[in-house]
Amino acid sequence: MILPVTDTSTLFAKVPFNGLLGMRREFCEAGQARMVLETRDELTNNFAATHGGVIMTMLDVAMSSAALSKSDFQRAVVTIDMSTSFIKPGRGRLVAHGTAVGGGRSVCFCEARVEDEAGDLVAKAMGTFKYVQP
């Protein structure tokens, strides 16, 4: 059975949570993706830094977007596994860079990092994503 080809390049915009956070996709092509977020008070924790859950979301979205672009936007992905390390508090404008680094027909291995306005590393992650039909 041959399934119809579907363009998954618009999936990011269809996730309400991305809009709620105010996250923007600046770039997504050839296994690379870049997301941007302007931190607001309602996205911070007790220490006036961007909440760790928000940073993990940025990492997850950057990696999943990189995986989508690696498939030429012909497939969707779901997160199987994600490991995150927090380096320093994130404040202000945050940028997440995701890269598809390997995998095969059914899974994609990715890495991502979040940097602050000064370009300092805030957090990094590795993740495994399963390709699924949209």
Rank of each mutant, 00 (worst) to 15 (best):
M126G: 14
A76I: 05
T57W: 11
G98H: 06
F73W: 11
M56W: 06
A67Y: 00
A33M: 07
V101S: 05
I55W: 03
V95G: 01
L20C: 01
S71Q: 12
L37P: 02
D120P: 01
G104N: 12
A67T: 04
K124F: 05
Q32V: 14
E38K: 08
E29V: 00
F129H: 06
T99R: 15
P4W: 12
V36Q: 10
S71L: 04
D116Q: 12
M1N: 09
P89W: 07
L43Y: 10
G31W: 05
M58H: 04
S83G: 13
V61G: 00
S85A: 12
R40A: 04
V95M: 07
D60I: 14
Q74E: 10
E38C: 11
S65T: 07
M82Y: 04
D81W: 09
K14W: 11
T99G: 07
H97E: 15
V114C: 05
S85F: 11
T44R: 10
A66M: 05
L20M: 06
V5Q: 15
D120M: 11
H97Y: 15
A48C: 03
G127S: 05
A49Y: 01
T84I: 13
G90N: 09
N18Q: 05
V95T: 15
V132Q: 01
E29G: 00
P16V: 01
F17G: 01
N18W: 00
E29P: 00
A48M: 09
S106H: 14
D60Q: 07
G104Q: 11
F109D: 15
G92R: 07
S85E: 14
P89T: 02
F129K: 02
V122I: 13
A62N: 06
G98L: 08
I55M: 07
N18D: 02
T10R: 13
R40M: 01
D72G: 13
M126Y: 08
E117W: 14
V95F: 07
G92Y: 03
E38V: 12
I87L: 13
V61P: 00
Q74T: 15
F109P: 10
A13S: 11
M58W: 01
L3M: 13
T6C: 08
L21Q: 03
L37D: 04
C110L: 10
L3H: 05
F47H: 11
R24K: 15
Y131H: 11
D81M: 09
M56H: 05
A125N: 14
T84S: 09
L94K: 02
A48R: 05
P134T: 02
E26Q: 10
R34A: 08
M58T: 00
A49N: 03
R24A: 14
S64I: 13
L21K: 03
T39G: 02
L3G: 05
G104A: 09
G127C: 09
R40N: 02
R93T: 14
T8E: 05
K124A: 12
D116I: 06
Y131G: 07
G98C: 04
F109E: 15
